[in-house]
């Protein structure tokens, strides 16, 4: 029987960028602050990021940032329509491995936020486990979506703010004050 972490990780890595970019409010957001994925060779590396002055090496990093922002500010905006056919982030597995500590922390948050007790999870059969994992991913997407919305809203009022990419760090505290 597969381990829960494997199932969740597998699902996290299959999250599609399309979810976010298809929504009008976030349109352009990913493009503006994260490098496009599946592009040139070496894309997503540190140097490439610095060269292009992007805050995030990958869209996946941006996704994690948005999720944690959504959680921090308790902004949950579930995604209504899912286009399952959309290709997942192509470099997620690599950067996912690099971000394993953060991902585990996120999974911990998801488990904490879930209504299910841990002991109940152990009672689940494979089908139930699969559904539970989907549930967690939907939660993740919802908070991430919420995070993106916060950024979009803030950007509307503060056009120049994110031009300085360093403000994504400052936004950790600034957003707390604003929202």
């Amino acid at each position: 029987m597969r381990k829960l972490m494997d199932i969740i990780e597998g699902k996290i890595f299959k999250i599609s960028s399309k979810y976010f970019t298809s929504k009008p409010i976030e349109k352009g957001l990913l493009v503006d602050y994260a490098r496009k994925l599946g592009g040139q060779k070496g894309s997503g590396n540190e140097e490439g990021k610095i060269e292009r002055g992007m805050a995030f090496g990958t869209v996946f990093d941006f996704l994690l940032y948005a999720f944690l922002l959504g959680v921090r500010l308790n902004k949950y905006e579930p995604i209504q329509e899912k286009e399952q056919t959309e290709a997942p982030f192509q470099t997620i597995r690599d950067s996912g491995q690099k971000r394993i500590k953060i991902i585990q922390f996120i999974v911990m948050i998801l488990l904490t936020k879930s209504q299910k007790e841990l002991i109940d999870i152990e009672q689940m059969n494979e089908k139930e486990l699969e559904d539970f994992a989907k549930e967690l991913i939907t939660m993740l997407e919802g908070y991430a979506n919420g995070g993106f919305e916060i950024i979009s809203l803030y950007r509307e009022d503060n056009e120049q703010y994110f031009e300085d990419t360093n403000n994504f760090v400052n936004f950790l505290t600034d957003s707390q004050e604003q929202f």
Partner: peptide
């Protein structure tokens, strides 16, 4: 390099988790 690397610290030093220790 330092200036550009500021945002990288979000992940490398887990700054991104700021304020989430309550979980």
């Amino acid at each position: 390099k330092k200036d550009m690397g500021f945002t990288t610290q979000l992940f490398d030093k887990q700054w991104i988790l700021l304020g989430l220790d309550k979980y």
